[in-house]
Amino acid sequence: MSDRSLLEIDNVQTSFRVGDSYYAAVDGVSLNVERNEVLAIVGESGSGKSALAFSIMGLHNSHKTKIEGSIRLNGKDVNHLSTSELNKVRGKDMGMIFQEPLTALNPLKTIKDQITEALDLHTNFSAKQQNERALHLLNEVGIPRADKVMNQYPHELSGGMRQRVVIAIAISCDPSLLIADEPTTALDATIQSQILDLLNELKEEKDSGIILITHDLGVVAEMADRVAVMYAGQVVELADVMSLFKQPKHPYTRSLLSSVPSTQDEKDMLHVIQGVVPSLPKMPRTGCRFKARIPWMADDTHEENPELREVADGHYVRCTCYKHFYFPEEEAEKDVAAHRE
């Protein structure tokens, strides 16, 4: 554990109650985040990436969710805190940015009230100091005419402005960890790049760590230092951003990358992953969880109990099937080429 270490997630399992049984949506995830680092968590709906983020923040409904394992923020296990102790950490040491700026703000409260609420809880500021700080924050996240916006309501602001307010709330007490759950998915491209720039600046300035949850690989390529790819509740690949994009290893990572339409290459057809993401109760619990999506791979290419292994410096992959993986399209092309010769 280095001094730069900020968050250590160790073997976290988050299970939801469906009927009478619990099903793990996050299944044994271990990750760490350092200061001034952006860790991206990528995956499709049902991969467990948002469930993990909500587990870190303790936002799941405790009656329907079980969270096991340890989540240590600055050395303190936040998973085993009482709600009132957790409330001293939330908003102060860790903040969260949500996907929908439209619904992430209380429609009946002014922007000022929504920002000062956090300051009121975590600082000894007087009302005047709170106001000054709120104004300062709005300026910091790039909101023009901040003094006017202070007294406005969410419905009076555009989507991009609302997301800036959500960020201002999240950073109001200078948290060391920021969790951003699809922060730009609901925004236009030009606004998206502005918000990403803003997050980058804030990270540098405050030496904080960011967990960026997204399904958008373009956003990952532009923002992340390291990337964890999740499938069916597990991390299947973890690497620094350059290795992940240049030498992706796990079949799921490679499939995802080749299913994104790019503005450069002129592929006519995109790669399609066979089958669907299994629903929570139907998720395979043994063997390689991605096996059903790559049925052309022989059974013996998979491991019986796949584990996340370091295959290069800082590059981790789950299951041995990556060593032999190929796309069926490529194989077909090779056949054609072989015939010609």
Binding site: T190, G218, V219, A221, E222, L257, S262
Partner: peptide, 14 residues
């Protein structure tokens, strides 16, 4: 400006 805002899938170009 719109075209410039498209995220680049290559982290080397960041």
């Amino acid at each position: 400006r719109l075209v410039a805002a498209i995220p680049d899938i290559d982290p080397a170009n960041r």
